[in-house]
Every structure is written in structure tokens, then in C-alpha cells.
Design a protein around this nucleic acid. Structure first.
Lengths: 322, 322
DNA sequence: CTGTTAGCGCATTCAC
DNA sequence: GTGAATGCGCTAACAG
């Protein structure tokens, strides 16, 4: 019995001949190792938990794919839980995941509250935040610099001669996609000496439809903005369509730019100029970091396990010189 | 100890007062039940395995969300594995999933070979196919009628007066999205007495780019097709863009129709007329069916557990009367 | 209603 | 290099 355990686990202390016999028996009997029993005995399940806002959202499903690919590479499986950025649900799934004895946790969500931190603390396994970070930067995370990304987008607009720049923002309570991107917008304007006007900023819910709506409102303004910065691509595409539906030419009359670079960004006409966020890489790098943490390979303090991936402005056809 | 087990499992045979004391102790000690040990003892893990071609593909991530929502409702978790429709990988993950003692298996993939059937047979837990079916219809499945969906799309084109109808197909080895949809196309033409012309059928790989390419080829034909039926939305959107880029008006000059109804279908101009496939529902219904199978609630023979969900033609703006 | 007992299928000592 | 014993943390009889 112990010998079987050894061959199944590739322990070298087995005579090749014995090993062969065991494999034959395994084959003949159709024996399949029981990973649950193994998990109980070894205290390792080779599975990691993934908390995600919504797997049907292309942004997150990209991250998930990055996670799964690397997990697979290191022979981990993932348990996937949608939590819709709802605090209650997030805390709940963190706990079930921990009960299932996952070897590590990857967390994507909305605001990271003290309750979250508390839940992570009761965990004996490492946690990595994906595409978010806690305010105190105490928990390992991998993300982009959202403020800088937004800043870069708006500066591009300014460099093209735009001054009347409206923003379709996310909720300001949302740290990464909401607040940080708004801050980047504000900073870019201020540095250029352009006053930020309240009527030029409206919050949407990241969906196409809200881009549609907010842009209708912008069109009632006087002066109309000559450029729109959307907090994400979906709303930007909504903006483009409202504009086109009202015979406003993009980018000739109004320019549109955003952040994300979802697949769809290059599948609309005009193709969307946007700041690309490397979603797949965020997932992949986060999972890789987690494997290191699980193996205690890294002696880095958590403060050092804050990786910020580069973003990149993708020039396409939705921005024109004014 | 047994009493603790009882309260944790909500067994009614516990005096309320004792129950309360146990809960207090749990709270005080920060006790967290170990689901792995529980799984070993009870032979149930309350987790199901999901093998999926590619979670970053919006079609499948929709299904996944349907699965997870219902799973969650019945207190199951899901282990997600991408298998890219590769047979080797599919067989491999089925086996790891089974090793992990999942209580059931949801399978989405490409062709179902005898090896697949064999792998399912060695499983002691129920299996449900999602958005595919085996040829012999021996395994429980939930899907739409792909041939009929394609047929309906093409008939709509014919009813609008089109006769020169080209098709951007999928691989004919792919049973559901490829072969069946091509059969539907053929059947519709034949019933209308329209010869099917080889040069009007080209296979793509379901991606936007291949819709782009194939359509360029169609435009070199004489006579040019007056309508294009694409096996999926992404290729249809590619078709629209090639058409527009070459100054061919959609739908005035050429109509475009397809199958799927991804989110993007209503986010392009003109909005895409397409046969909607209820992806979320397919996932949800499949998971629900699986719960029944896992509880042996259903005395149905496997032959009866073949659910075919309705599809629906969504009229938007990419098809015009000829 | 509660406590005792015996596994669940493995990994991991420890002997040999 | 191999086999025998112990226990991982829990559920499921069983007895009281």
C-alpha cells in the first residue's frame, strides 16, 4: 500500500521493476487515486479558489483564462465563484473556499473592506488580489495603475487639441475602475490648466446602455464636448453609437477614448482608441505569484508582492486632432 | 463530536440549548469545518466539474454563468477546466475531475468520441452534456436544435427574396456549430429549390477575422451573394465590416444573418439579425438536470434526459428585403 | 437527544 | 527498497 502511494507520487525510492508491476495492477484494476483522501492526508488539495465578480463579463473571463492556464501548468485546479462585487457574497464564498481547503486564493472584487481583510487573515493560505488592491497595500496583488492609465488617455486627447473633454465615469466608490480613473482624468485636466466642469462628468454602470444614455445627455450641453473619455470600452462603444445615431461623426466631430481594450474594441467602426489593460497577463501573473507564495518560495514581504503591470495606449480610429 | 457534526449539518436531533452552546464554541474557537474530511467521510464533495472549451469565449462564459448560478443555488461549487476542444486535454481533465471526486460532471467540448464515452462510463457520477450531444444520444444533454436554428435563419433570408445566399460555415467535423448548421443551410436551400453552390460555402474558424476574410472572397464572386449566413455572430460581424469597408451597404446591398446572439450583436451598426441561442439557460438547465441526476430524483432513462431548448429569431437591422 | 465507535483512502512515519 | 501502523477530520451507524 505504501509502495503504491510511492509510485503514484513519483517517489524515487521504488525499484523500477516494482514500479512497473504497480502500474500494471493500476491499469488492470482501473484504479483511480482519490484526491480527497490524498488531500486529507497531505493537507494539500492542489486547488485554488478564484473569486470573481462575473465570469460572463469579458474583462473577467480574460483574467480567468490567464489564471487557469498558469494553474494548469502548475497542476492546480480552480474553483470558480461569482460574487458580483457584493460584499456579503464575497465574504461567504471566501469562507466556503477556505472550508474546501484550497491551497490559495485569488480575489477579484469591488471595494476591499476591513471585513475582507479580516476574512483573509483567518486564512492560513496565501491570497493574491487580481485587478484590484487594498488601500493599505498590505495584501499581495497584481494590477495596472488605473489612475495613470486614465491620465494617459486624457493627456492623449489634450495633445490632440481637445479642451472640452467629458467623462463617462464608473462609481466613485469603486476604487480601481471608478475612483482611480476619475482621478487620472482630473489630474490630466488640471495639469493642462483646464477647469474640470461638473456637468462634463457623469457616472455610468460600465454597460453599453449607460454609455448610450450618458452621451445623449452630453449632446444637450453647450458647449458640447469635443471628446469623451469613458471609464471602460463598453461605455465608449455606447457613446460612439449615440453619436453616430445623432449624425455626429466619430472622430471628426467628437473623439472617443477609453480604457480596457476588450476584443470588441477592434470590432466596431470606427475602431476604438483605448488604453489596453493586459487582462490575461494579470490573471497569469497573479496565479504565478500565488504558486510562489504557496511554495513559500518568496521571502518578500507582502509589501513587495505588489506587482503593477504596464498598460499601453492603442491608437485606432476613434480619436482625431481637433 | 458527533453532536458538533449534527449541528453543523443541521440535523434536527439536537436540543436547541445544546445547539446554541455548540455555535458559541464554534464562534469562540474560530472553528471552520473541513470540507475535505467531510468529503472523505460522506463521499460527497458538493462540487461539480465543468469542462469547457474556453472560458474567455463569451458564448461559453455565458453558459458558465448559468451553471454557476444554479450550482450556487443548490450549494455546489464548480471546478472549471478549459480544454480548448482538444480531445487529449478533455480526457485528461475528465480524469482529474473524477479523481477529485466531483459529484457530477458538466461537459462542453467538440466532438464526442468513443474515448469520451469510455471516460464517462468509468465515472460513477452523472454526466450532462452542455451545448452539444453525442451522436447516439445516450448521454443526458441540453442543447438547442442547431440544424433547425440554421434552417430558420436561412428560410428567413429566402422569405425576404434572397436566392444567392452564401454561408460562412464552421468546421464540418464540429457536430453542433459546424455540421448541423451547414445541414440546416442546405436543407433550407433545397426545400426552396435553390441549388447549393460550392463556391458559396466557405469554412471559417468562428472568429471575427475569419468572417472578415471569407467575405472578401465572396465579394470576388460573380454573381455576388445578396445575403450571407454566418455560422456564428462573430464571423457575421466580420462579414458586415468587410462589406462596409468595401462600400457595400448592409443590409441594402447585402443582408447578413447568423446564429448565437452574443451581447455584441446589438452593439454593432447595423445591429445584427440573428437566431438567439439561450446560452445562460443552457447552462442553468444543464446544472439543474445534473442536480436531479445526482439526487437520483429522476427515474428517466438517459434517452429521456435530452433537453432541447427553444431558439428564437431576433429581428434587427442586418437583413433587408431583396 | 447524546456519546462511542469505526471507517472513508490516502501519506507518512517507523521498522525491517 | 518494502511493508505495517498511525492519523488526517469528519460522518454514520450504533448504543444508551
Amino acid at each position: 500500500m505504501a509502495t503504491v502511494s510511492r509510485v503514484v507520487n513519483n517517489n524515487p525510492n521504488v525499484k523500477p521493476q516494482t514500479r512497473k508491476k504497480v502500474f500494471e495492477a493500476i491499469e488492470r484494476l482501473g484504479y483511480r487515486p482519490n484526491a480527497v483522501a490524498r488531500g486529507l492526508a497531505s493537507k494539500k488539495t492542489t486547488t485554488v479558489g478564484v473569486v470573481i465578480p462575473d465570469i460572463s463579463n469579458s474583462i473577467f473571463s480574460e483574467v480567468a483564462r490567464g489564471i487557469e492556464d498558469i494553474a494548469n501548468m502548475y497542476h492546480y485546479n480552480i474553483i470558480l465563484c461569482n460574487a458580483d462585487k457584493k460584499k456579503e457574497k464575497e465574504i461567504r464564498v471566501i469562507n466556503t473556499l477556505l472550508e474546501k481547503q484550497v491551497d490559495g486564493l485569488l480575489f477579484m472584487g469591488g471595494v476591499i473592506t476591513d471585513e475582507h481583510i479580516q476574512a483573509f487573515k483567518t486564512s492560513s493560505v496565501p491570497v493574491v488580489l487580481c485587478a484590484t488592491a487594498d488601500e493599505q497595500r498590505k495584501i499581495p496583488s497584481v494590477d495596472i495603475d488605473h489612475e495613470q492609465a486614465a491620465y494617459d488617455a486624457v493627456v492623449h486627447l489634450i495633445n490632440q487639441g481637445h479642451r472640452d473633454i467629458a467623462m463617462i465615469s464608473g462609481h466613485l466608490q469603486d476604487p480601481a475602475n471608478g475612483y482611480a480613473r476619475y482621478q487620472g482624468y482630473k489630474k490630466a485636466l488640471e495639469e493642462a490648466g483646464i477647469p474640470v466642469r461638473d456637468e462634463y462628468v457623469r457616472v455610468g454602470n460600465y454597460r453599453y446602455e449607460s454609455g448610450l444614455e450618458v452621451t445623449k445627455y452630453f449632446l444637450t450641453l453647450d458647449p458640447k464636448p469635443s471628446a469623451i473619455f469613458a471609464a471602460n470600452d463598453e461605455m465608449a462603444i455606447g457613446a460612439i453609437h449615440t453619436l453616430q445615431d445623432q449624425q455626429v461623426k466619430v472622430p471628426d466631430d467628437v473623439s472617443v477614448i477609453s480604457v480596457d481594450n476588450i476584443r470588441m474594441a477592434s470590432m466596431v467602426r470606427p475602431q476604438l482608441t483605448t488604453v489596453a489593460q493586459p487582462m490575461y497577463d494579470i490573471g497569469a501573473v497573479a496565479m504565478r505569484l500565488l504558486t510562489k507564495l504557496m511554495n513559500k518560495e518568496t521571502k518578500d514581504s507582502p509589501e513587495l508582492a505588489q506587482v503593477v503591470l504596464p498598460h499601453e495606449l492603442i491608437h485606432r480610429n476613434s480619436v482625431a486632432h481637433r
